[in-house]
Design a protein around this nucleic acid. Structure first.
Length: 306
DNA sequence: AAGATTAGCAACCGCAGAGCC
DNA sequence: CGGCTCTGCGGTTGCTAATCT
């Protein structure tokens, strides 16, 4: 059909994102919400293609993302679902791990779990879902609240063409006591910057400090495990034929979902779920795990973006 | 200490589906 | 209804850091 490229390649910047670009992007999304990515580069002046902006947001800047240090529980979920779904359903797998992106899961699978499984198979062991995992593993050390705050406090910016206010510009320009300086001495190097989520957290956290207080949280700000439904009912995918779980199509805040990790919540759904037919064994296991570990807050809550 | 190799991960590419006109 | 645009997704690449020789 002669589909045009998503952006003209001329003048489009590629490669690692800089802190400045991140702030511009976050500020813009704070004001307009995610979506309409086509207009992002135009409106913000970012020399990035829309795809790149979307990817950066969904894989890195989006609120509530947990990175690195997969817990044994998460590993178990991934391995289990991967064996059920195969390599081509990373988004579906990610929907069971709300704080993880499909890209992250895919990377983790390719770099860690594949080898791990191979090793285990070589030793004649088969994978079994972990009986329990440690709630306080290193993977939980990421400062979710700070990360959440740093984005959720960004209201009120975006006046002017470039979505970076004067204060931020000064911080960036000055680097004297900028969040960048605090966050990462090497922040000038975009590559090392991009490799540290903590840097972003800190620098944006510092950036947000001067922001007006956040608006009161919307209802449904915190979901418990019962409120969360994966995008794909496992039974229907695995072909066991017992797909009693019916998933409503209602999406309360589609714009906030970023499309990748989508959950469907509503009161009706919750009620339905309470009267739902028995869960599939996998889903039972997933929810039981969460309950056992008291991880519902950790693994199955999705903070709202704004 | 220096070069080579490997591992990890951010980002890009291209295809496909959904929705709009 | 068909074409076009936008967005989502999975596979892959390329860069950097860590480790090994």
């Amino acid at each position: 059909m002669g589909r045009p490229p998503c952006c003209d390649k001329l003048g489009v910047k590629k490669g690692p994102w800089t802190p400045e670009e991140d702030i511009i992007l976050v500020s813009y999304i704070q004001e307009h919400g995610p979506g309409n990515w086509r207009s992002v580069p135009v409106s913000t002046g970012l020399m990035r293609c829309s795809k790149s902006c979307r990817l950066r947001w969904t894989n890195y800047l989006r609120t509530g993302i947990k990175r690195g240090n997969f817990t044994s529980h998460e590993e178990g979920v991934i391995v289990h679902l991967q064996s059920l779904l195969g390599n081509s359903r990373w988004a579906a797998i990610a929907s069971y791990l709300p704080r993880r992106t499909d890209n992250d899961i895919k990377n983790y699978w390719n770099t860690h779990l594949k080898k791990k499984l191979r090793k285990q198979q070589a030793m004649g062991a088969t994978f079994a879902p972990p009986a329990s995992s440690s709630p306080g593993t290193a993977g939980d050390n990421f400062d979710h609240h700070n990360h959440h705050d740093m984005v959720s406090r960004a209201d009120g910016y975006g006046a002017g063409q470039a979505y970076m206010n004067k204060e931020v510009s000064q911080l960036i320009a000055g680097r004297g006591h900028s969040p960048f300086a605090d966050a990462a001495p090497e922040a000038c190097s975009s590559s090392s910057y991009a490799s540290s989520v903590d840097n972003i957290s800190k620098l944006l956290g510092g950036f947000m400090k001067s922001s007006p207080p956040p608006p009161p949280p919307p209802p449904h700000n915190n979901y418990d495990a019962d409120d969360v439904k994966p995008l794909l009912p496992l039974d229907s995918m695995s072909g066991t034929g017992s797909a009693e779980l019916s998933f409503t199509a209602s999406v309360q805040q589609p714009a906030l979902m970023g499309g990748r990790v989508g959950y469907e919540y509503d009161d009706e759904t919750k009620q339905k779920q309470q009267h739902q037919a028995p869960l599939s064994s996998i889903e039972k296991w997933l929810f039981d795990e969460a309950a056992d570990l008291e991880l519902s807050d950790e693994c199955y809550s999705v903070p709202m973006l704004f």
